[in-house]
Design a protein around this nucleic acid. Structure first.
Length: 798
RNA sequence: GGGAGCAUAGCUCAGCUGGUUAGAGCACUUGCCUUACAAGCAAGAGGCCAUAGGUUCGAGUCCUAUUGUUCCCACCA
């Protein structure tokens, strides 16, 4: 209830609204727009919370933080989600109708997402919200495409492409998931003259598509066959036998059939040796009807039938059970086929070196995550296919000349445009023809998601320079690179990679100076939380309800950056303990501030100076850690200070001075008031980024406004900020440590003797450095009260 | 097969550029109702810092190798 109250207060007072009039020290954050494909899970909360905590930190450092949220609603993930949710097939209804259903569904979920994000207290400026299917974003995405196409960085090509027969679309390498599957190795005899060459294959249904046989040039067993012809069983046609060093001698029989297309290797050989193409598997996942024996069957039945025929024909030597890893489509788990078709691609293979070197200009946190990017770029085998034969996406702004086939691009003033609904209003500049056919494909969702810096900066530019188009107004480049990107490590090969690629192409610049990469929340070691398993247990809405948003946030700031973690509801005990402690501690300090005047900023007692200096030190240390995105390590440091130094020691020391000015003196009490106020307000500020509701609630309820002149805790700055560095006196801090040791020894003694803490003792002898004696004498009354000692004596260490 | 991370108390983890008896929280044991907090306070027990070498006056920290573990990439014949 208190959290909701505080959230309403923030919203009403526009605490987190971006202020375009403050043009200095703008800090821009490229924050992940969640995909609208179901629920936000605990992993989102974990990673979003870490980013958000950092954003709050920057705000409290005095930066004008540009921190928008977006929703990635367009694209295949949303389509698949809608198909499942409504139990429909996109292909079964009209394009418009399906688009409409997707729009409605995504809109509905966006509202849910937004309300969940708000209930976490995430300080996005929701006025800056964007959606990737919106007109503005479609315009940016289409502009990007046209620019790339005009510079030949994007191109149209007929060639073998990765194909998902389930989703009925081409896909990109980044969308492949390796999956271990059970299969059989079938050993099949191919006749070569009067000899038999045995071949092992997992895909006998492709026998009719065999175009060649390869052996390794170092494989003495088979050299005699090279350049001869082999006869394909069942189909009885001849194929050449060639040698290629890429053939693994110890795999199968060491002789391999190359079909069009069984796998990526086939494509490689197809290109390398200009092999003929045989159209076996069609886009809907069935065999070409013209193929003998298996025409029109699906792949599985075709395989079974061929195996049966081979057996009957005594052409199956043996079959061997194996498990092998196949590429599946990440959205539906269906095995990927390779089928030639005409698609739009973005050039990657020619830019690998630049893509590798430019990564060095970005600061990676944690640094080792850069390796994943490097490994990915190094291993890319395909240019980025950006066409999708789908519906709920950004259309290609392209028409094809009916006469000569030339692709004609939309004029920029037409954008955003759907070529299906809008005629190309010009003549073909190649042949002059004025009849066109529209491109029906839409773009890969990443083709748009990879433009989040451009989207963010266009919106920022709109606010500041009143001009929305980043591609036209180069002023916007002043904000490029953005200050930071944040994300989890699973999308380095997609979001990170594609964004860097596009930024390189459009601006020849890195997209952001820093990238902060969070870990994953796992159910147990190595196992991602899936939607089916333990959905309720990890449902953020339920967790907020049972544990509060602040508790989840505090938990999210528990780890080192980039490290995967587990969610255990038991961990929430710690959090509750902490929140109660902060509440009680605040209550105590506030109860002694009734007559406190902020103008009397003076700590006269050394022990008060100690805690103020220690506070400053912890602020400085926390700043250093968080600047390196280590919000978890910073939190632990702050916890330690808050709990041990402030609560367990300092408060115990000054308690009586606060309660009994008659014994300790009015001035002395004021000094304690000031020190405890200073510490509390700074502790609240430190924790404001982690537990914004609780701290704000304390701030409001205790009417801190009268001291700090700000309606909200979150509009205050940390003592150490953009313009101010805190200082602290190590000598005084050392003295404070000595006092803590002293107290600890007395407590130990009492504990060993089973004495109550409040039982008095006759005398305490302090062993200290001579130069600190005056400090201790200054603290004597406090110590007598705290230790319940009757008198204090001294000895000195050298 | 290539690469990266991790290996410290029963559990979850800190230990920065090598420096005195290795830290925290949870759990455990004991004591304490202390004018904020028993969801608390105090004290205690618990570690050949994965293994083996090496560098160094000195290694949890640096180097080499090994083992275990997790992840990324590759592996579809």
């Amino acid at each position: 209830m208190a959290e909701k109250e505080v959230q309403d207060f923030w919203e009403k007072n526009k605490i987190y609204n971006f202020d375009p009039s403050r043009k200095k020290h703008i800090f821009t954050i490229d924050n992940p727009p969640p995909t609208i494909s179901g629920k936000l899970h605990i992993g989102h909360i974990f990673s979003f919370a870490q980013t958000e905590i950092f954003a709050r930190f920057k705000r409290m450092q005095g930066y004008n933080v540009y921190f928008p949220i977006g929703f990635d609603d367009n694209g295949l993930p949303s389509e698949r989600f809608v198909e499942k949710e409504l139990n429909i097939k996109a292909s079964a209804i009209s394009r418009d109708e399906f688009f409409e259903k997707c729009s409605t569904a995504t809109k509905h979920y966006e509202e849910k997402f937004e309300s969940l994000l708000k209930s976490m207290g995430f300080s996005y400026d929701f006025n800056l919200k964007y959606s990737t299917i919106s007109d503005d974003v479609r315009k940016i995405s289409q502009t990007s495409f046209i620019e790339l196409a005009e510079e030949s960085k994007a191109y149209l090509k007929e060639s073998p492409v990765l194909w998902c027969a389930e989703c009925q679309t081409s896909v990109a390498q980044a969308e492949l998931n390796p999956k271990e599957k059970d299969s059989y190795f079938y050993y099949i005899p191919f006749k070569v003259e009067n000899d038999i060459l045995e071949i092992a294959t997992t895909r006998p249904e492709l026998l009719c598509g065999v175009v060649c046989i390869f052996v390794n040039p170092k494989d003495k067993r088979y050299l005699k066959y090279v350049n001869k012809k082999a006869i394909v069983p069942l189909y009885n046609f001849e194929v050449p036998i060639l040698s290629d060093s890429e053939v693994c001698i110890d795999k199968g029989t060491g002789a391999v059939m190359c079909a069009t297309f069984g796998d990526a290797k086939d494509v490689e050989w197809f290109n390398k040796y200009s092999l003929p193409y045989k159209n076996v598997i069609l886009k809907h996942g069935r065999i070409n009807e013209n193929v003998n024996f298996i025409g029109s069957l699906n792949i599985k039945s075709a395989k079974n039938k061929i195996v049966k025929l081979l057996e009957e024909n005594k052409s199956l030597i043996k079959s061997e059970k194996i498990t092998h890893i196949v590429s599946t489509h990440e959205r539906c788990d269906r095995e990927i086929e390779i089928i030639p078709s005409k698609q739009w691609y973005v050039d990657i293979l020619n830019r690998k070196e630049k893509l590798l070197s430019i990564a060095n200009q970005i600061n990676w946190y944690p640094f080792s995550m850069k390796n994943r990017y490097i490994a990915w770029v190094n291993n890319i085998k395909w240019d980025w296919c950006i066409s999708r034969q789908r519906y709920f996406g950004v259309p290609f702004p392209v028409w094809y000349c009916l006469n000569c086939g030339k692709p004609c691009f939309a004029k920029k003033q037409w954008l955003p445009v759907d070529p299906i609904k809008f005629n190309y209003k010009d003549k073909c500049n190649k042949c002059g023809c004025s009849e066109f056919t529209p491109e029906k494909d839409v773009m890969d969702t990443w083709a748009t998601s990879s433009l989040t810096p451009q989207i963010n900066l266009s919106n920022l530019n709109k606010l500041i320079n009143n001009n929305c188009n980043i591609f036209e107004n180069k002023n916007v480049e002043n904000f490029l690179p953005m200050s930071m990107r944040s994300q989890a490590h699973d999308i380095i090969r997609t979001w990170t990679f594609y964004t860097i690629l596009k930024s390189l192409y459009h601006f020849d610049k890195i997209p952001w100076q820093n990238i902060m990469i969070c870990g994953f929340v796992l159910a147990k070691k190595g196992e991602k939380i899936s939607k089916s398993k333990g959905e309720l247990k990890f449902d953020p809405k339920t967790l907020i309800k049972t544990h509060t948003a602040d508790a989840l946030r505090y938990w999210a700031a528990n780890t080192k950056l980039g490290v995967d973690t587990f969610f255990d509801p038991n961990d929430m005990k710690d959090t509750k303990r902490f929140m109660t402690k902060l509440w009680n501690c605040s209550k105590f300090v506030i109860s002694h501030l009734e007559d406190f005047k902020i103008k009397e900023k003076k700590a006269t007692k050394f022990i008060d100076k100690f805690i103020i200096n220690a506070t400053n030190k912890i602020i400085s240390e926390a700043c250093n850690l968080i600047e390196n995105f280590e919000i978890g390590l910073a939190r632990h440091k702050i916890d330690d200070f808050f709990w041990k130094d402030f609560c367990d020691n300092y408060i115990e020391i000054v308690k009586e001075r606060l309660y009994q000015p008659k014994i300790h003196g009015e001035e002395e009490r004021k000094s304690a008031q000031y020190a405890s106020y200073y510490c509390l307000i700074n502790i609240l500020k430190l924790y404001a980024i982690y537990v914004p509701h609780l701290t704000e609630y304390i701030y409001i309820k205790a009417d801190f406004k009268k001291f700090e002149k700000s309606p909200s805790l979150h509009m205050l700055l940390w003592e150490e900020n953009l313009k101010n560095k805190v200082s602290y006196d190590e000598e005084i801090i050392f003295f404070g440590e000595e006092v803590k040791n002293l107290i600890s020894s007395v407590r130990k003694l009492k504990s060993q003797k089973n004495m109550s803490i409040k039982e008095s003792i006759d005398s305490v002898t302090i062993n200290c450095y001579k130069k600190h004696k005056s400090f201790f004498i200054d603290t004597e009354k406090d110590l007598i009260a705290c230790l319940k000692a009757k008198k204090i004596l001294y000895t000195f260490k050298s």
